[in-house]
Structure formats: structure tokens, C-alpha cells
Design a protein around this nucleic acid. Structure first.
Lengths: 116, 116
DNA sequence: TATTGTTATACTCTATAACTATA
DNA sequence: TATAGTTATAGAGTATAACAATA
């Protein structure tokens, strides 16, 4: 399943779901389409994903206009993000600890350069 | 699909299939189980994967004893690897070119440290 | 008794097409 | 006319269980 997946499993979250939560935290203007485009998830597949998060009480769909709706964290979702954020940080720290110190500071800049 | 996948598509190879070919090239002692373990592919899922490669004439199943069999490149498979190897090299070079020079030499050592 | 290769199958994830309503 | 959300469904990929044969 992957290490991060295992860390998130006790929280009943998949990696993609956590990615959505991270992306929307502190914002209230992101639509499902925008999130999907950024995370490379098809519009159609965003629907069941957001439905799961909504059923879990972690997000709300907040109308922007008659066509679009912002995906925002609920109060419960905000609270959950303290746990989820810590797990993600723990995961990233675990990865970096395996990297020899002389290479460590170069890893994230290098990866960021590749992704964009 | 992913960049490497797109590069390999004209060769009618998936990334996992190419990974198997790379792994067995120059060797004649690797079993399906060993390959699967190294590439994180279930034993059961190795069967159709190897069947595809065998149908394409790229590999042979070579008995080791009554239970195990080595997966080896056929002559056709060896020839194909010159093309596939070039495509993989092209892909990796493309990735590295995006990385700023000062970070470049640190990327592979850092990633290798993470995977093991 | 553990391992290899295999079969069959369930499950998850992703992709595609089409539809409605709104910008 | 293009876009957002949605539905339904097909397809690819992965996981699980069980089996026979052999180490």
C-alpha cells in the first residue's frame, strides 16, 4: 500500500483523500475541478472521493455560484488536519532521515524541479 | 499514463514489463518469484505479465529444477533491450535535465538511500 | 513444511462517455 | 460555447485464496 498509506489507514484516509485535505486547508475558494486538475484526478473520480470525505464529516461543499462550489474543511476536518499533518510530517521526516546528510538539502529542490 | 509509459507505448511495453526485462538482462538465474519480490509484484500477477512477454517472444522460461524456472531474455528480447534501454536512458536524462545543476548529482544517491 | 508456479476471482483504482445546468 | 458537477460503466491494475507439484 505504501508507507504513507499505512500511516493514514488508522485515520481511515487514503493518500489521495489526505492530499485533498492538505490542499484545501486554509482556503475556501477551490473547486472540485481545480483540485482534481492539480492532483491529477479526473473530475468524475472526484465525486465519490469528496462524497467519502463529506460522509466522514471532514469537508463541506460551499456554493460559489449556481454552477461551482468550493470544497472547504469542516470544523471536524480542521481538527483532523492536526493529526493528519503530523502523520505526513512524520512520513516525510522518515524519508529524509534515510538520506545521507550531504544529499539531504538537495532532495526537495530537485524533486520540485522535476514536477513542474 | 506517465512519461516513461508514453515512451514505451510504441514498443508495446508497460513500465512493469520493461522493469522485468531490465532486471533479467545479463542474468539467467532469476525466477518469477524473485523478480516479483524485487519489483513488488505479487507472484500471481507475474504469471500474466510473463505470459505477455513470452507471447511477444521477448523471454523464455528456462527450467532450473522441477519446481523453479529462470526467466531469461530471448535473442529477440536482447535485441529489443537496445531500444528499450535507450528509451529508459532518454527518460532519465529528461528528468535530470530539469534539475538545476547544483542539485543534480545528489538526486540519485538520495533516492537510492530512500528505496533501501 | 515451505516454496514455486498457477488458476480463479474479488477488489480497487482509473478512464471514458454522456447528461444537466449554469457561466 | 465552454465549464462544473454528476452518473454510469468499462477497463486496468492489484490483492487474496486455494491448489498441485516439488524442494
Amino acid at each position: 500500500m505504501g508507507e504513507l498509506g499505512n500511516l493514514l489507514e488508522p485515520e481511515n484516509l487514503r493518500v489521495t483523500e489526505a492530499a485533498v485535505l492538505v490542499m484545501i486547508q486554509g482556503r475556501s475558494d477551490l473547486t472540485a475541478s481545480q483540485i482534481g486538475k492539480a492532483l491529477d484526478i479526473q473530475r468524475a473520480n472526484m465525486v465519490p472521493l469528496l462524497n467519502r470525505l463529506e460522509s466522514a464529516g471532514l469537508i463541506r461543499r460551499q456554493p460559489i455560484d449556481g454552477k461551482s462550489q468550493a470544497v472547504v474543511l469542516s470544523a471536524e476536518g480542521e481538527a483532523k488536519m492536526t493529526v493528519v499533518g503530523a502523520l505526513i510530517q512524520q512520513f516525510e521526516q522518515g524519508l529524509l532521515e534515510r538520506v545521507p546528510p550531504e544529499h539531504r538539502d538537495h532532495l526537495l529542490p530537485a524533486l520540485n524541479a522535476i514536477w513542474k
